[in-house]
Design a binder for these strands. Structure first.
Lengths: 336, 336
DNA sequence: ATGAAAGCGCTAACAT
DNA sequence: ATGTTAGCGCTTTCAT
């Protein structure tokens, strides 16, 4: 019967077993090169045999480095975030960081409180698409190294997915399909990304000299999209930009329910390219976000921030992905 | 300019500021009732002013309680998990636990290694739908309090969603719609839930005296479903049970592509009732899992396990949710 | 190259 | 009710 681990395995138990001091054991793990080959081998062997795992809390206490980062998301339930969480976690683990996930449940007030709670236990923070105001963020974040995803906060390192180019391309695409009147179904005003996307589309519409009717903001959810579909129907636009894919799916459902067919009667483009975008019928023309790169960049920036390097603002371009939700404008729809 | 927090705020800085000992400060937070009202007030006031946050690592070191639990999921990207993660996190936070999320990326070998890594930093573990074998789980888990979700592991507390009743109801429903020949599109053999679901359906089919053709196992993913759709088409079944909604969506896509219409030509039922199930066209008849209750129960069980209480095995019933993917058997499809 | 000792921030006896 | 002290497991000077 192997595996009779009586109590906890610490550097002390190992030290005793090996006839060395605890410091040597510690060194054998943290700076192996400075301990003699034979004793290092022995220590490692014993450690493995005993199933030793360094106590991160203790190490953190001693070093001031927690070995953990906090990841704050507004809504883990939103399909945009799980892949992002994964990519961040993967990048974090190569930097030897665990990830403390915190879900704010889409309420801004929670965000600041939650940050307050985790700040003592982490080396740094990644906050994704926060809903709080800049001012609130600034005061609760204080001097804890933080990188912001999909938002730009003055003085903080950030990495955003820039959808401007792709959204412009989407507009052009629709224009070539004959559309001249567009609906902009706006996302939550509190979302930086929503504002950025709206601005990009506004800009494009002005340049392209097409009509744009804005409505919203709507919740970044399926139900928000249902609501938005009414606005789409009420406008006499033939094509719409939804804030994100989730909302677009709701719009789709609303349109179908109202007897409007996509893409035959109306065209629709989403944003983010979440799983849903591919599985919905018709599949969504959307802007694909570079989620993997986003996560990796966030970790890089965080490392820099902890190292005291100046804050950088990264922008990674989304790319237009053509699918089935966009088509030629229906005959007779083009106004005089 | 407020906010010049010189160094770190500890119980000592507060103690000094208040002219009391550190222990009193500590007590003011951990057992407020045993310290005099006036000094408690003062301590709290100063703490608030200085922005004191107790250092969880230190507290954990001293108490042996980490204030953190680990949550291991096989694939955060699978839409079943985010709502579960949320419900667990909410339940955990009322027990004053933070949640360390660990994504195994669907590879069983990772699971044991990841468990190894976090076990030292958490009070307990919740492992959701693990893919590892019982034996592997048992050895890596060792004596760390653990509750298992959607799987039964001898000797461990567990809470599962029992889909037997609902699946049986689904079968009955389909039978009433005239279906007599069914396809069972099986999920990953390593998944306990998959085996359980298959068994339930097998049982029902035998009792109901209908034909059942099994195929799989298929990956619990959209692509797995695409693959499974072939098997469905090859069998001459008129209705199929997919392992889960995600797979069902893939099946749907495969059928559509092959020119088969749901529910006109074939019926399909999923399982879990993830967001996708509602948004896909046609929306999926599926078994709704009580995700909130699952999370709450898991935390309860974990608390019990940590308290040394004997392991309980909870089963929470899923409920059948009728939607648009099931319909009457097509004329002529009923065999002699 | 290794050991001894102090200390990270906190809690928990044990005094008083 | 409050102060003193020791110690959680680890790292890190400082000696040797």
């Amino acid at each position: 019967m192997a595996g009779d681990r009586p109590k906890r395995v610490t550097i002390y138990s190992i030290a005793r077993e090996c006839g060395v001091s605890a410091s040597t054991v510690s060194r054998a793990f943290t700076r192996p090169e400075i301990v003699n080959d034979d004793v290092r081998e022995k220590i490692h062997a014993v450690a493995r045999r005993l199933g030793y795992q360094p106590n991160k809390a203790a190490r953190g206490l001693a070093t001031g480095r927690a070995g953990m980062i906090g990841l704050l998301v507004p809504d883990i339930t939103n399909p945009f975030f799980p892949p992002l969480v994964r990519s961040i976690q993967q990048a974090a683990s190569v930097a030897d960081w665990s990830v403390l996930l915190v879900d704010a449940d889409e309420v801004a007030a929670e965000e600041t409180e939650l940050v307050e709670q985790v700040r003592s236990q982490v080396d740094g923070l990644i906050v994704a698409s926060p809903r709080s105001t800049d001012a609130d963020l600034e005061t609760t974040l204080g001097d804890i190294p933080t990188v912001v995803i999909n938002r730009v906060v003055p003085g903080r390192p950030s990495v955003v997915c820039d959808n401007t180019t792709a959204l412009t391309a989407a507009g052009q695409h629709l224009r070539e399909l004959g559309h001249r009147r567009f609906a902009l179904l706006k996302g939550p005003e509190a979302s930086w990304a929503a504002r950025q996307r709206s601005e990009a589309i506004r800009q494009w519409a002005a340049d392209a000299e097409v009509d744009l009717v804005e409505s919203g903001d709507f919740a970044a959810s399926y139900d928000g999209g249902r609501e938005a579909s009414r606005a789409f129907l009420d406008s006499d636009a033939t094509a719409a930009f939804a804030f994100d894919d989730l909302m677009a799916c709701g719009v789709l459902a609303g349109l179908v329910e109202a007897g409007s067919s996509v893409p035959d009667d109306r065209s629709l483009v989403g944003c983010d390219d979440v799983l849903l975008a591919r599985t919905v019928t018709p599949s969504l023309t959307t802007v694909t976000a570079p989620v993997g790169a986003l996560g990796a960049a966030a970790i890089d920036l965080l490392r820099e921030a902890i190292g005291g390097e100046p804050a950088r603002e990264l922008r990674l371009d989304g790319t237009l992905t053509l699918r089935a939700s966009t088509g030629t404008v229906p005959v007779g729809a083009v106004r005089a």
